[in-house]
Design a binder for these strands. Structure first.
Lengths: 338, 338
DNA sequence: GTGCGTGATTTGAACGATCAAACCCAGCCG
DNA sequence: CGGCTGGGTTTGATCGTTCAAATCACGCAC
């Protein structure tokens, strides 16, 4: 393995100084055209690439962004986050940034990881996902001045008008509203909602969309709930559908997740109504496989927005804090099937 | 933001020299007990962490491993790789390594990414996934002396006896054999196989397992095939089951993937035989949701094996090449459902 | 008493880049 | 003709760590 060429090797080959080579790379506009070309061809000739550790050391920037990898929970969802991570990585790459992934089982453990990564200067910024009420991460990051953007709103009093940090989220209420409206038009007025127990932010937001659409239409429908998980959801709805007439008196069901939707769909099938229109959330492969409608979150759009907030619309480095907290609310898209 | 403490700060606080602090961190055994304690408490006191860029620059090691993120194909599988990446990251973290992810749409693009990452010294090693016949990556990496291990065998002449590089894979034939045997015992002798078109390595390997189990039992069954994708699979089997008696004369079906299995399951349902025992591969959430049996690949075991090959059983740095090429074949596990 | 070996610690240099300031050289003005 | 300006380029210092070699302290044998 021949030693990799350094900036000095290039300088010698091009008959200029170190710094000029550095300038060609970092501030080409200040170098005279003819010398720039000479240096560029020397770079190409030698196959030179700047040694990133040296650059990091001097500039005190790692050009790396950290992101947490959620454990595989074995459930139906999860795909959304995987798509999101992929999209963020792609976007980051296009802006000359790298993505470092880390794992942690609890928020506390995540703070440990983050402390290590930031204090060793391995990352310049963080993308956090799945924010929740009283999330310890946001305050911690703000205090230490670590630039970050969250996929998920702060769930505080004033998310929209005066957010405590930059965030991007999908407008769950709008998604549920779209699904509910579609159901009202195509199936009938008795559209139910199948959600998580109250208090989960995301779930409440989606439920609100259903409520609003129903109120607008002057319609009413039952609300069911179950904790996360396909099996639980199926059991819950099997119970509900066992009530005489319950299944017959329902025109459609909007669900808080694809897991819930699949559970409800299977329960409806068991109850002899395989064709009950069911709407899920996340547009996972399972919903696709079973031909269920679902709300597509467009994690690619979220990813693009996250990087815009983190680096500015065209920047090639993380914005230093001091930049105002902004947010982006992505409009989801209803995918109709079945 | 107060300036982060350096090794010099710690040295001063502990009344020793730079190098002694460094030794406490990197070779504690050569430092006298009393001084070590003094230095350790100074480290704790100041909250010192070594600056990774400086260390990288000097040691010429980044302690970082690169891994490719597959694009979200929208299909049923993909979960296996996500679980694998998560597990690798966890294992790497435990050994003091970091994981850097990158994306690429084609193998050629992947080589570009790898060239950049290795030449800038951002990564010490690579984990590649989804190897195939004539994969350009393995040769490229070997030539350049970049340490790597693949999840997926080399698919060459002498994979097992004389592999051209270290690899870990799941024993697909064993998995299919287990499923077939189980089907023969619980369902009947007419066990079919639903595979990919021949030539895909992985698919051929799994099919071989079915063939062997059938031959051992002196049984015979039909073979079907379809390209990847749930919709295609369903259509193919709907066609097959339309033949008079075809569905009745089948006791069970072993499939090359969960997508195939789900397609076959749905087609069987359409044909009036919802209870046809179907066996998938990958144990994805969809199979779980529909109550189909499937073969669990245990990506966590694969991940552990990959890091063992890359770093040695207990090492804390990537083994330099010169280490012999080894391989590990992980035994998959049949998950019976329905 | 001198020399030697050994374990513990310190010193100087180096890794490869960028920053900050100095330098050089035309061209222009007074 | 001296001084000033400013674009283009070079020089020296620096980021924080580890390597390699030097130094130191101490006990022991001759």
């Amino acid at each position: 393995m021949p030693k990799a060429p350094t900036v000095d090797d290039v300088a010698r080959a091009a008959g200029v100084s170190r710094q000029t080579v550095s300038n060609v790379l970092n501030a080409p506009e200040i170098v005279k055209g003819s010398t720039r070309e000479r240096v560029e061809s020397a770079i190409a000739e030698l196959g030179y690439r700047p040694h990133s550790a040296a650059r990091m050391l001097r500039t005190r920037r790692s050009s790396t962004i950290g992101i947490h990898l959620d454990p595989y929970a074995g459930g139906v969802s999860g795909v959304v986050l995987d798509r999101f991570i992929h999209a963020v990585t792609e976007r980051a790459s296009a802006r000359g940034m790298r993505m470092l992934v880390y794992v942690a089982r609890t928020p506390e453990e995540e703070l440990d990881r983050l402390a290590e990564l930031t204090e060793r200067a391995e990352i310049d910024a963080v993308v956090i996902t799945g924010t929740f009420h009283g999330d310890p991460r946001t305050g911690w990051l703000s205090e230490r001045g670590v630039p970050f953007v969250s996929f998920g709103r702060p769930w505080g009093a004033d998310d929209l008008a005066e957010p405590s940090h930059s965030w991007v989220d999908v407008d769950g209420a709008a998604g549920a509203r779209a699904a509910t409206r579609h159901a009202l038009v195509t199936a009938g007025p008795r559209v139910g909602f199948f959600g998580w127990p109250a208090g989960s932010g995301t779930g409440d937001d989606r439920e609100r969309g259903w409520r609003e659409a129903m109120a607008d239409a002057g319609a009413a429908g039952p609300r069911f709930e179950a904790a996360d998980g396909l099996a639980l959801a199926r059991k819950r709805m099997s119970g509900a559908f066992a009530e005489p007439g319950a299944l017959r008196e329902l025109d459609a069901l909007v669900c808080v997740s694809d897991a819930h939707a699949v559970g409800a769909h299977l329960a409806a099938g068991d109850g002899g109504r395989r064709s009950l229109p069911v709407f899920g959330f996340d547009n996972t492969p399972v919903a696709e496989a079973l031909g269920l409608s679902s709300i597509e979150q467009s994690p690619e759009l979220v990813a693009a927005a996250v990087l815009d907030l983190l680096m500015g619309a065209t920047g090639h480095a993380v914005r230093d804090r001091g930049a105002p907290a902004e947010h982006v609310l992505v409009e989801p898209r209803l995918i109709v099937r079945g």
